[in-house]
Design a protein around this nucleic acid. Structure first.
Lengths: 348, 348
DNA sequence: CTTGGGGTTGGAAACGTTTCCAGTTACAGT
DNA sequence: ACTGTAACTGGAAACGTTTCCAACCCCAAG
């Protein structure tokens, strides 16, 4: 007695009607007499019928599902982002296929391929720095794409809608705050120059200092690769090489973590001996002792907005009014002042 | 010139062969002459053909995709869990539909319904405390289920494979450690009694103390609801009511956070005035000052193992040797000793 | 009594794939 | 040259759904 799954045909037979009628009842379209409707509903309930999204999707040529591609679910920023996407998608009745690129462009391309095969309606991506060929390919086969956090350059990505934050302004706010406290020798711990974010924040740092007429000092800007170890090494080298610095701005939360650990290692009191601030406000910033001043970005909102954007994407099949994404949505950052920054020490 | 999506038929036509042959070439089964294979491959490449998983899944009656249902992606434990599942699924060529129940049984039931419609191969769930009816239903329609973190009671859940951690042993280890340091009045911050985890850890705490012949003191055990506010309130009330306690064990990381914040608020030095430990090792534990002693659970492994378990589930369609999950997989916890615990203060 | 129309209904096609089965070809062995 | 076999190939069915279209019934209007 091996029970096949129940199909619409079984329900039709049980209710003594045609499959078309069952479909009409269940999808609520078309006209059905109350008597029949009742019979069908009863039969469906009786048999515990579950319509298959496969059949439907095949016929309708749309799956009602989106792909979400991020570097790492484990990263607090990404996690918030995912939560935002999930919230929006779920309110729109769509499911979300999530996968992690781990920062590897090849892996990213593979995942995009898989999502294309799955015929998702669109993809939301926090893209790697890899080339944009697979994005172009994805759009060519007709699915919409939205970028988050940063857009990707290259031919394939023109007009892709994007949700960004005003990183430049965020960095500037932090720098202005530190300079306002009296700091002049401010170290910057930057992410890899190869990533858009790493580049942009470092540039913004330099610019902000210049605008405030602080003498530039290339030795105060160090870069790390994206591993924790590299972050720690970078922070250690900065603190060691430049005992004269009075404040440090970390370009992301990994680097912020490194800065805090290294400062502790070197027995520097925060903020008495050195002030620390970072870009990216994560949960532990508040638990640090002292709590860390940080630039917050609205990760959850970004996810939500990106999802909204995607599902109204100009590139969607059937929509001839290709709005082409227009300008990217730019969300504000906010400097959260906590206890980790103070006036510079008279002397070290 | 609106371009329909390319189907296998187009490729067949372009290559001058039948669709069957194209399918054989692309899926690598059956025998095809090298000449034909080459032609088909060329045509497919030429047309940028992407096979549709819909057609395949419909025909094959399997989608190659799993569902992952957790309370909240934003929680560090859940995030690690997701990462583990993603790693395993991706190595097995399956995609993962993720959704968050937010601890709401009704929402959970809805999501399960959606996953059933999507005809996923199976579901990995960190279930809510709600009733198990939808789990029973899901298994009835033939998809496999695996629980993580805790199994769910009730009729529907007998024999569901599960990956758990030895929470009892974890709590015991923490208690033994604290008692070993000389503590006798140890506070416990517990999660909601309604959740399996909340109950189990509190019970384990009481038992462990009893086994060590420490005089029980009901006033030292307080419970919080699952919100941050409630956690903070619980911690504050405990510290305030019982100035005589010398150590606190937090039942989860939210409560640990609350304990740290309240201790700081009350100007208690850690560990000089009060020792703090918690269940669940999260990233910030190491960044606290002092770093927090915590019981680590292998979240990522749990996800990975659950995924493995699921895809070999006895309940899978076509597998007659229903092993019925057998005993749940039980993974060990580990007490990570850091600086937040010390001998009790002579006096307060 | 005939006609027309609106409300219901079911058959069948279509969606894109895989696979069974039968048909074709080529070639080796007699 | 004939047969047998093996390799290759294509048509068609099947998967579960939606929707078009034709058919049907019933009743009111002419």
């Amino acid at each position: 007695m091996t029970s096949r799954p129940i199909t619409i045909k079984d329900v039709a037979a049980a209710a003594g009607v045609g499959v078309a009628t069952v479909s009409r009842v269940l999808s609520g379209s078309g006209s059905v007499s109350p008597r029949t409707r009742e019979r069908v509903l009863a039969a469906a309930r009786e048999l515990d019928y579950r319509p298959s999204a496969l059949g439907r999707s095949l016929k309708l040529q749309r799956t009602g599902g989106i792909g979400l591609l991020i570097p790492d679910v484990t990263d607090p920023f990404c996690a918030e982002l995912v939560a935002g996407v999930l919230a929006c998608a779920s309110s729109l009745g769509q499911h979300v296929i999530v996968d992690a690129s781990l920062g590897d462009p090849a892996r990213e391309a593979e995942i995009v391929d898989r999502l294309v095969e799955q015929r998702v309606e669109g993809i939301i991506a926090l893209p790697t720095r890899g080339d944009a060929a697979h994005w172009a390919a994805a759009r060519r086969v007709g699915l919409s794409v939205a970028f988050v956090d940063h857009a990707v350059g290259g031919s394939g990505a023109v007009g892709v809608p994007a949700v960004l934050t005003d990183d430049r302004a965020g960095v500037r706010a932090a720098v202005e705050y530190l300079v306002g406290l009296g700091h002049r020798r401010i170290g910057f711990l930057g992410g890899p120059a190869a990533t858009p974010t790493g580049r942009l924040r470092a540039d913004a740092f330099t610019e902000a200092l210049a605008d405030l007429s602080v003498t530039p000092d290339a030795g105060l800007l160090v870069r790390a690769r994206s591993s924790r170890d590299s972050a720690y090494a970078a922070a250690a080298s900065l603190f060691q090489r430049r005992a004269d610095l009075t404040a440090v701005l970390a370009g992301n939360h990994i680097l912020g973590e490194a800065a805090v650990l290294v400062a502790r290692e070197f027995d520097l009191r925060v903020p008495a001996d050195v002030s620390i601030a970072m870009i990216e406000d994560v949960a532990w910033a508040e638990l640090c002792d002292p709590p860390l001043t940080a630039v917050a970005r609205p990760a959850r909102d970004m996810g939500y907005r990106a999802c909204e954007l995607l599902l109204r994407d100009p590139n969607r099949p059937g929509d001839r009014t290709r709005r082409e994404g227009g300008r990217p949505v730019m969300l504000p950052t906010e400097l959260i002042v906590r206890g980790s920054c103070g006036p510079p020490a008279r002397t070290r």
